[in-house]
Structures are given as C-alpha cells and as structure tokens.
C-alpha cells in the first residue's frame, strides 16, 4: 500500500507521536506526584497564590479553541472552505490569547519575586520552591507546545487556503487537530494540579 494514499497509517504515526508527548509530560507529572506527597501543605498554600480567575479564563479559551479546530475539520469534510478558514483562524487566535494571559500571569509573579532561583523561593520553604519550580517548568513546557500547535494549525490554515487540504485529503489538518487537542488536554490536567490544589 502506498503511504501517499494511506490516511490510516498517517493517523497511526500521529497517535504514536502523541503517546511520546504523554510520556514527556508524564515524567513531569511523576515529579509532581512525588513532591506533592512530600509537601502537600506547601503545595496547597502555593496554589492559593496563583490567580484562579486567569487560570479559569485560560481553560475556557483552550476549550473554545478545541471546539474551533473540531468545527474546522467538519467544515473541510463538508467542503466548506470559507468556514474552515474562519474556524482555524479563531483557534489560532485563541492560542495567542492564551499566551498573552500567560505572559501577564508570569510577569506578575516574577514581579513579586517568585521565579526559579529567586531569593524568595530559595530561602523560603523547600516545598514552596518545588511547587513554583514545577509551576514554571510545566506551564513553560506547555506554553512551548501551544506555540508549536499554533504553528501546525498555521500551516494547516495555509494549506486550506491554497486548496491542498480538501474534503478528500485532510489528514494533515486532522493530525494538527489531534496535536492541538492533546495540548489542551494537558492543560485540563495542569489547571487543577496547580490552581485548584486544596
């Protein structure tokens, strides 16, 4: 079977890749689990310092973006190119909005003197240092994934406009969408672990 025609194979490859992403974040979640069991009370106190309003807004933004990606795929399948382009643009804009929020959140915390290696963290409670260390590493890595996901969706957008992604041939868009959903899914786990830990 020629790979050029085999969409199932391309999806299989993407799922295997997504699996490696799960393992990548899985390593960090293992760290979180171990340190949570060591420093449960510090983690709870740390969680209260994070801004739940921002966190909730970002969660909603990502859920809307996932909806937009799913809608764009449906639109392509129905050969509605215009709708697909609109939905994809909306999804990318949601990603950008998420990053802007994240930027304000991070800079606020850094302004308060809470960043990796800061005096406040190093000479404070060890559990608090670990909590915010993990916060920056995990949300930072997630932010990088958002950027990569936006780039992928951007390429899919370009292909759709140029007519390379069509109703019969949209596996690239589907794979980019899968990636985007996974990045969203990570956030669904990250959000309660840091913002809602009680």
């Amino acid at each position: 079977m020629k790979p050029a025609m085999d969409d199932r194979g391309k999806r299989l490859g993407m799922w295997l890749f997504l699996y490696t992403e799960v393992m990548l974040f899985g390593g960090l979640f293992v760290l979180y689990a171990v340190y949570f069991s060591m420093y449960a009370s510090d983690f709870m106190a740390g969680g209260k310092e994070l801004d739940r309003f921002f966190g909730t807004v970002n969660t909603v933004i990502l859920l809307v973006s996932s909806l937009a990606v799913a809608a764009s795929i449906t639109a392509v399948q129905r050969n509605e190119k215009r709708a697909s382009v609109v939905w994809l643009t909306a999804a990318i804009l949601c990603g950008a909005l998420f990053l802007i929020n994240k930027y304000f959140e991070w800079s606020h915390k850094i302004h308060e003197g809470i960043y990796p290696g800061s005096d406040d963290l190093i000479y404070g409670e060890p559990g608090r240092n670990i909590f915010f260390g993990l916060y920056y590493i995990i949300t930072g890595l997630h932010g990088i994934h958002i950027v990569i996901g936006m780039a992928l969706l951007g390429v899919a957008l370009l292909f759709t406009i140029k007519g390379r992604i069509t109703g019969d041939n949209h596996v690239f868009l589907e794979n980019a969408g899968l990636y985007w959903h996974l990045v969203d899914l990570f956030w669904i786990f990250i959000f309660p672990l840091f913002y809602l830990v009680l």
């Binding site: 760290l31 420093y39 290696g117 190093i122 240092n129 993990l134 920056y136 590493i137």
Partner: peptide, 10 residues
C-alpha cells in the same frame, strides 16, 4: 537553578 533534585532546595 530550580533545585528539583537539590536536597537543600527541597
């Protein structure tokens, strides 16, 4: 220097 593996930093 996050200190994830450094006992002095938790």
């Amino acid at each position: 220097g996050v200190g994830l593996f450094d006992p002095a930093r938790g």
